[in-house]
Simulated scan of single mutants.
Amino acid sequence: MSTSKKEKPYTSNLKGVAALLGEGFVQTEAQDSSPYNIAINLIKLPSSQPRRYFDSEKLRQLALSIQEHGILEPLLVRPQGQEYELVAGERRLRAAKMGGLEKVPVIVKELNDQEALQISLIENLAREDLNSVEETEGILQFISLRLEQNTQDIISLLYRMQNEAKGKVTQNVLGSKESITIQSVFNTLGTISWESFVSSRLPLLKLPQDVLDVLRLGKIEYTKATAIARVKNDLERKALMEAAITENLSLVQINERIKSFRTSDSQPTSLKERYKQVSTRLQKAPVWENPKKQKALEKLLVQIELLLNENSSE
């Protein structure tokens, strides 16, 4: 099995790390880049980790690959007393533990807290399976570290930059040191422009929490999630989200269902029509494989049969 670039983030992204952290990083990196094996139980996770969600199936597949081929790229750690703190490679570390490895190859590097967190953020931002919410939060956190400001201040600054670029204000924000640093970060990352980030990504952070949670797990595209978030009714939004995922609805289909919600608000749907709609959705839904839901369905069917029997006896 070949190793993708995202399975070896430290070496393959070293150029990007150096570009974002500066020449000092390049010089010290050249001094100590020889990997060696250490006991896996000596590696501890840092208290602040940029990545929060891991696909269990992909992790299992990587664990199988590691069992067969070993870890092809070393983890990056920094010394912490008699132990080591992980800086880059959490996915490989988790998979190595799943695969039963006792030792893993590492590169040990002296890093301060800010350098370690910045490298972790850069590694996270370079993932192929990075979802839009993780990317948004990661970029904000990275800029926050660079400018030594909290993320809310960074968001405010980005919106001021946008307003000035559109000619709405004349504050000369775009010429400030902070603005130039922000533009430099986006240019170096090369994944999205700061203008697109402000217009399409920052609004994601204002989505309802249930939509954000699903988006973070990578179960749905952000364009679909944004559309679903327009549904204000919690129950309707949850039902639409489940349908979008299980039935793989297109954005067009999602918008059609949102229109049907609005129509039903102004003109109540008849019971007969509602039954037709529910029946159609029920045929495609995965509830038939769920034993608990099967019992609930059985009870509902019994009630319907009783109603029909009552009508036939009248």
Rank of each mutant, 00 (worst) to 15 (best):
P35Q: 12
W288C: 08
G81E: 04
L45Q: 11
I71C: 03
P291K: 09
N124K: 02
A296E: 15
N112G: 05
F142G: 04
L301K: 14
L42D: 10
V87L: 02
S313V: 08
A165V: 02
T3R: 14
Y84S: 06
A239K: 13
Q27W: 03
E256N: 05
P35W: 10
V278H: 07
E134H: 15
K295Y: 10
I143K: 05
Q277W: 10
L42T: 13
Q209V: 13
S250D: 09
I245R: 08
E310R: 12
I40T: 04
E115W: 06
V106E: 00
G190R: 00
R281K: 10
F261G: 00
W194V: 05
L235C: 01
K97I: 06
L145H: 10
L157E: 06
V87G: 01
L121C: 00
L42W: 00
E57Q: 14
L215F: 12
S196C: 01
K284D: 14
Q82M: 11
A30K: 15
K293L: 10
R237W: 02
A165G: 01
R237E: 03
L215D: 10
E273H: 01
K232Q: 15
S132D: 15
E85P: 00
N13Y: 06
E221Y: 07
F142Q: 07
Y36D: 09
W194K: 07
E134I: 04
S65N: 15
L20S: 00
E242H: 11
A18K: 05
V108S: 05
R160K: 10
I38W: 07
Q49F: 02
E135Q: 15
Q183Y: 03
F186V: 01
I220L: 06
I154D: 01
K166S: 07
L64H: 15
G81V: 05
N13H: 06
Q209W: 11
Y53D: 12
R94C: 02
V173N: 08
S279M: 05
K232S: 13
R94A: 05
L157D: 01
I254L: 12
D210F: 07
E7C: 10
R201M: 04
E102M: 05
D55V: 07
F186Q: 03
A243E: 06
E23W: 08
Q61S: 12
S250P: 04
K232V: 12
S65T: 14
V77N: 01
E310Y: 13
S279R: 05
K299A: 13
E289K: 14
G100Y: 13
E195T: 13
R146S: 09
Y84T: 07
N172D: 13
L215C: 09
K259Y: 02
S270Y: 00
K219L: 15
D234T: 11
E137H: 02
I139G: 00
F197M: 06
I122E: 00
L240K: 03
A285I: 02
K109L: 14
N37D: 11
I182A: 02
Q49H: 04
R94W: 00
Q67R: 15
T28Q: 09
L301T: 11
D265E: 13
M161T: 09
A165F: 09
G89M: 07
E90V: 12
Y36G: 08
I258A: 04
G70L: 11
Q141S: 13
S179F: 10
V108Y: 00
L158E: 03
N255I: 07
R60K: 15
Q303L: 11
A63R: 03
S47Y: 08
L215I: 12
E115A: 09
